[in-house]
Structure formats: structure tokens, C-alpha cells
Design a protein around this nucleic acid. Structure first.
Lengths: 231, 231
DNA sequence: ACTTTTAGACTGACTAGTCAGATCAAAGGA
DNA sequence: TCCTTTGATCTGACTAGTCAGTCTAAAAGT
């Protein structure tokens, strides 16, 4: 009965545990968060898979906690809210993608290939990323163009980070004359991005028996004009 | 999680008027629903825009009724449940798209163009459709690859209907030798579909100042190998 | 006469977020 | 080696609120 009245007392010092997060990630206590880091990662994984399946609103915090094997309170200890958990998850995921795109580009460049080769390598890397993190991929497709959502800003910046990598390669290719300068960089980058995204999702969802090579070859053909290049 | 137990109880007999819907669309009473048809359309429109903005679960039936300018009871008089409303809405939308793709194909054929021209016309039609029904487009992107959802079957059949149109043109083009027979029809169709879908969404969301021609030209270039065809 | 819509009160189930207290792991002390 | 302490981390019952779907009697519409 009187339970809730308590408040002020114990709290005194460390009111909201979640708030302490900032301090914890700050200068003090760097080594401490080992256990915590593992918990956060488990929560990310659980949330990504559930949200990809059901959507954000349809996924309850209880379900996330359940799948991650922690108590509900732990979710709120590690993230200030369901929304924040989701935002951090989006950022985390796109960073991984951007990294693997950049790496593909660097590898291709190191092998002395053309920019178009680099582009092709990035398509491959994109496909592999989607195959490796199908839930995350679904989630992007579902959220990337939604209007009005709270985290629209997050999504926009996140999109920008991935597209920037593609755009820079396209720009180089145009500069060196490998690609026509009629090319609209932004539009082409997003079309390529979309092509890979959707091809990967369709591959996973509706034709999972195919190999990456298979899918990659089809997309390569499309991009390199060997479909109707003669026209 | 999925369907609310529903607890058949209360309903007892065939109380739910919405259930009569089936009869209405059946053989009997075809002319009757003029007024009703208008109400249903308004509900579709309201629901599509809200769901595109917020997602299905985050959208309440009260909001839908509000935006459509009808009473909540009317929603349940016309549709048995929120889920059913959504399913019918998906079907209705994709039918419109498939129609406009078929029409583009027919028009191109009538003008005596090649199959590749027909493909190009379909890309244009796809873009225009997306531009004309942005909410519906967003909604497809969000739902098309979601796993585990109740209406997965609906989505799958809906996707098939749109892709079939593209695939048939590709098949013809291969048969007549216009396109190489190395082409993987299914994969290419879905990649094209995705390319258009995503390009359209990106166009609307992030670069709305561009014209259809602009976007169409970029996609055409990509497909017809004028980007890196020389390689 | 018959169908369709209205308005909104109501219920029963479900959910985001909170908080006082339990548990853990690492460090020191004996 | 075996306590004891300390602060970070985790727990789960609980609060306050939301929402799908039902129900009513009466008013339009055709």
C-alpha cells in the first residue's frame, strides 16, 4: 500500500538508473561495462528479429526482454525507452553496412580494378550483408521511407551514410570518364541501393535456394548493360 | 500476438453486419452498395495514409474513422475487423498497379514498339503510379517482405500479381531474341520492380523537386546499359 | 421497407514505463 | 583462503493508460 510513497528516500542519490548510463560510458569505469555490453547486444538482436517480423509497434518490450532472456527492467536499465533502443539499433546496423561497403571498395581498389569493378564489388558486399542480417534488412525496407515517424531524422542520416559510399564511387567513375557524365549521381546511387536491397529481400523471402553468385550475376548483368545493352 | 482470441461469445449468431460483406460482393445485390462503396473507398484512403505514416499497429481504428469522416461503428459495419480492412486494402491497391502496368504494355505494343520499349513504358507507369499513390507505395515497401505477419499470404499473392506482368514481358523479349537468354527472368523482374519502387520512394521522400522524366531517364539509362555498357 | 450510418459509452485485454529491492563481480581485509 | 563491502546491474510486480471491438437506439438515405 504505502509502497509507492517511498520514493524520495532511497532514490536520493541514484534516481533513474538509466540516466547513469551517460556517466558509465563516460571517462570513469571503462572496463566495467563488459557484462552490460553483452546484455545490450543480446537486446539488439532480440529487438531486430522481432521488429522485422512484426513491426515496431506490434513488438512489445516484454517480448524483447523475453527473447533476450532478461527481465523487462533490464531493457530500461540499458535504454531510456523503446524508441531509443530502436534508434540505437538502426544506427548500429547501418554502420556495419557502410563499413562493409567501404571495405569492398578498398579491396577492389587494392586489386587495381576499375571503379566499375569497385561498384560491382559493393553490390556483392551489399548482397552478402543482407544475407547475413536478413532481419536488419527487412527492417530498413520497412522503415526507410516512412513519414511522420519520430525517428525520421535518424533514418535520414542513416540512409545518407550508406548512400555516401556509393555516391563517391560513382563520382570518381564519372570523373575518370569510366561512366557517362549524363549520370545523375544521387538518383543512380539510390536506384542501385534499392535494386540490391529489394533483390536481396526477394531472394531471401521467395527464392532462398539460389546462391549469392547467381543473384550477383543477375544484378551485374543489369548494371553493366548486358541485358539490353544493344538497344 | 496475432488474432485476438475474439471470444466468439457475444456475437452469437451472425450478428456482425460486416460478415454480410461477403454476401454483398457476391452474386446478390450488386447495385445496392452505391453509397456504401463510397464509404469503403473513403475508409481505404484514410487507412492507407495513416498506415503509411505510422504503421499498421500504431494506427487506431478511431483515427481511421476520424480521417474518413465516419463513425467508428461504420468501420465495423463495412469490415469485419481492422485486419480484414487492411487485407482488402492491399489487394485493392495492387490490382490498380497491375492494371496500369498491363495498360502501359498494351499501349506500347499498340504503338508497335519493341518489348524493351514496353518494359520502359512499364517503368514509367510504375513511377507514375508510385507518385500518384505515395502512401500505398510506402505501405508496400514496409510490408512486402515482413515475415510472420498474419497476412503474409495476402502479400505474397499480391506481389505475384504485379510481378507476373513484368515477367511475361521479359519472357517475350527473351523468346524473340531481344534480350539475352542468360537472363534470369524471376530475379530480373524482382530487381526491376525493386529498383522502381525504391527509386520512386527516394524521389518522393528525399528529392521531390525532380520531375518524372528525370527519374525515368535515370532508370532507363541504368536498364538499357548506357551507364557502363561500354565495359 | 430496407439498408446504411451515427454517436459514443463501455469492456476486457494488453502495454510502456517505474521502482524498491535482489544479485553479481571485483576489490579489499583478516 | 574465506569473509565483507561496494557499486553496477538486473529483477518483476505494479501503475496508469491505450485500444480493438461491441452495443444501443435512433436518424438518414434510396
Amino acid at each position: 500500500m504505502s509502497i509507492r510513497s517511498g520514493r524520495g528516500g532511497g532514490a536520493g542519490s541514484g534516481t533513474a538508473p538509466g540516466a547513469r548510463l551517460c556517466a558509465a560510458t563516460g571517462p570513469r569505469r571503462v572496463a566495467t561495462g563488459r557484462r552490460r555490453e553483452a546484455t545490450r547486444r543480446r537486446l539488439f538482436e532480440a529487438a531486430v528479429s522481432l521488429i522485422a517480423e512484426q513491426g515496431f509497434s506490434a513488438t512489445t518490450v516484454d517480448e524483447i526482454a523475453d527473447r533476450a532472456g532478461v527481465a523487462k527492467g533490464t531493457v530500461y536499465y540499458n535504454f531510456t525507452s523503446k524508441n531509443v533502443l530502436y534508434e540505437e539499433l538502426l544506427r548500429d546496423g547501418i554502420d556495419q553496412l557502410a563499413d562493409s561497403l567501404r571495405q569492398a571498395e578498398r579491396t577492389a581498389a587494392a586489386r587495381g580494378g576499375s571503379r566499375v569493378d569497385a561498384l560491382d564489388a559493393m553490390i556483392r558486399a551489399g548482397l552478402e550483408f543482407c544475407a547475413g542480417s536478413p532481419a536488419l534488412t527487412q527492417l530498413y525496407a520497412a522503415e526507410l521511407w516512412r513519414t511522420n515517424r519520430t525517428w525520421r531524422a535518424t533514418v535520414k542520416s542513416v540512409r545518407g551514410r550508406a548512400l555516401a559510399v556509393v555516391e563517391s564511387v560513382l563520382r570518381d567513375a564519372v570523373a575518370t570518364g569510366e561512366l557517362t557524365d549524363e549520370l545523375d549521381i544521387q538518383l543512380t546511387a539510390s536506384a542501385l541501393f534499392g535494386m540490391v536491397l529489394v533483390a536481396a529481400l526477394d531472394w531471401q523471402s521467395f527464392q532462398p535456394h539460389r546462391s549469392v553468385e547467381d543473384v550477383h550475376a543477375s544484378l551485374s548483368r543489369l548494371v553493366q548493360g548486358r541485358v539490353s545493352g544493344g538497344a
